[in-house]
Amino acid sequence: MTIRHHLSNPLLMAYAAGNLSEAFGLVVATHISLCDECRARLETFEAVGGAVVDSADTVAMADGSLESVLARLGPQDAAPAPRKRGFFPAPLADYVGGDLAAVHWRPLGMGVRQAILPTARGASARLLYIPAGQAVPDHGHRGTELTLVLQGAFRDESDRFGVGDVEIATEDLEHTPVAEAGMDCICLAATDAPLRFRAMLPRLLQPIFRI
């Protein structure tokens, strides 16, 4: 797997700072599970956080604070056994509640399926299943949309996205992603605003399908 499309520095820094929505955080955590380049960049931003703490002012702890913490130190946790790798990287498997077989797909028409993942309001995450050669209706975005490819590949007006790649689509991008021939495409997508379809019919269906 050669990853060509990575996470942006602002996304990684916001995640390092703990200020990314849960849905975007899920895409970031899943991509990083596949991409050591972005993991190294994330840990670099965490090092900046370390420097911020290191050079911070101090506020004195309460009297007896150390003693009370010492008194409650118990046995340390043991290192967990390495996890067996399934189709989904660990953070995504946690949200799905299992591997690919555990996904509750809902049909969107033309063989396209989706599964909404439970995340906090403000941004939403979903799995998309696009049959090989099939297009997702063209749509624009009010906010940002992150799409991470887990199987197969898709192309749109901007580029080709293969396994591990993330597309960061901003407000100005109107695009029609098409799954490549040969293999069905599975993606994890997150948006911080509802999608905006250009055609009438999907727009009417939007509230029903929550996309």
Binding site: G18, E22, S33, E46, G49, G50, V53, T119, A120
Partner: peptide, 25 residues
Amino acid sequence: ATWVFTIARNRRIDMARKARRPEPE
């Protein structure tokens, strides 16, 4: 210092919201 920061950050997120906190493998 970096490791302390990540623990403090996680504690802050857990405090601020009831949402889960996705972490990389």
